[in-house]
Design a protein around this nucleic acid. Structure first.
Lengths: 113, 113
DNA sequence: TAACTATATCCACATACGAACATATACTTG
DNA sequence: CAAGTATATGTTCGTATGTGGATATAGTTA
């Protein structure tokens, strides 16, 4: 028996903001790249193929959303996954999308009658 | 030992789309309202306080994202949560946001020195 | 201090997206 | 078939947001 909590408009807005942090391909790429561990901005620029300006901006967005953490060391800045729930989140969504695609493939395969 | 799958740009885009379905306050409200079970458009309009046009649009978005299912019965259309992972997703994010807020409150409480 | 590297920010532009009104469509009932 | 109800869609508008180039800032090294 699960209790469904009540959510104020402010709470709803916060949750929406958290989701929107992950609702962008480049940001997802960055998060995914960081699954392997902490990396510098430069490393992320090379790995994702984005421009330095864009990568920096998205990293800022993710950090403000408390998804990533920021550590400065000399000239470089290292980012890492700050919120461990991100792993489960991505896993869930990834699996769900996969399942949906499989269903679509199946439906397509038997759709002729 | 967890294997990190490789994700193509297309896969990334799909996952981003799924997240963006939940990255909007009104859509979250609708999803949250449907946690209690299937409801008609009219019921959702009343419960959320949105306009009929907007609610209908957002319901369409959520349905296309495979978050909700649609059942027509006479004049009315009933929507329901189609993807059970949504529950866990919201639970995770909700808890994470809550935790983060608590940390901020604590930090604020001891920040004066 | 001057050159050099890594990162962040400013700016301009294009596009996506949510809101609201009006209207169309689908279904029911007299 | 006409009127009425529930839902969807067309349209316009304002705003938010992603992008890339140029530039600013911070830190290192000669």
């Amino acid at each position: 028996m699960k209790k469904v909590r009540w959510l104020s408009d402010d709470a709803i807005a916060l949750i929406a903001r958290r989701f929107s942090a992950l609702a962008e391909p480049m940001r997802l790429k960055l998060v995914h790249a960081l699954f392997a561990g902490e990396k510098s901005v430069n490393a992320l620029v090379e790995e994702t193929g984005g421009t330095q300006a864009n990568v920096s901006r998205h990293l800022q967005t993710l950090t403000q959303a408390h998804v990533l953490s920021r550590r400065k060391e000399g000239l470089q800045v290292f980012y890492a996954i700050a919120d461990p729930t991100i792993f489960k989140l991505c896993e869930l969504v990834c699996g769900s999308v996969e399942k949906q695609l499989n269903r679509q493939v199946e439906a397509f395969g038997v759709s002729a009658d």
